[in-house]
């Protein structure tokens, strides 16, 4: 692609981006927070996992047998 062609593409790209619809940062942040709050109860790294359910906990039970 020639330099002129590449720059024309860039101009078109920027025009397109300049015309997109935007929301206020405050609104965007509220929506990010809302998603997180709705899913936090199911986020085991946040809530903690009961050790009996943790497949990666160390196996110590069998040594006696």
């Amino acid at each position: 692609m020639s330099q002129v062609q590449a720059m024309k593409t860039q101009v078109m790209q920027l025009r397109q981006e300049a015309n997109i619809q935007r929301v206020n940062v405050s609104q965007a942040c509220e929506e990010l927070i809302k998603y997180c709050m709705e899913h936090q109860k199911g986020d085991i790294l946040v809530t903690g996992i009961s050790q009996s359910e943790n497949p990666f906990k160390e196996n110590k039970g069998c040594v006696i047998i």
């Binding site: 002129v4 720059m7 101009v11 920027l14 981006e17 300049a18 935007r22 940062v25 405050s26």
Partner: peptide, 24 residues
Amino acid sequence: LSKEVEKLKARLEEERQKLNDVAL
């Protein structure tokens, strides 16, 4: 074309900045 690119970039930045009303 370079001028146009600079102008569009400045406009983009301005449009984005307008809506920057608060920090997360």
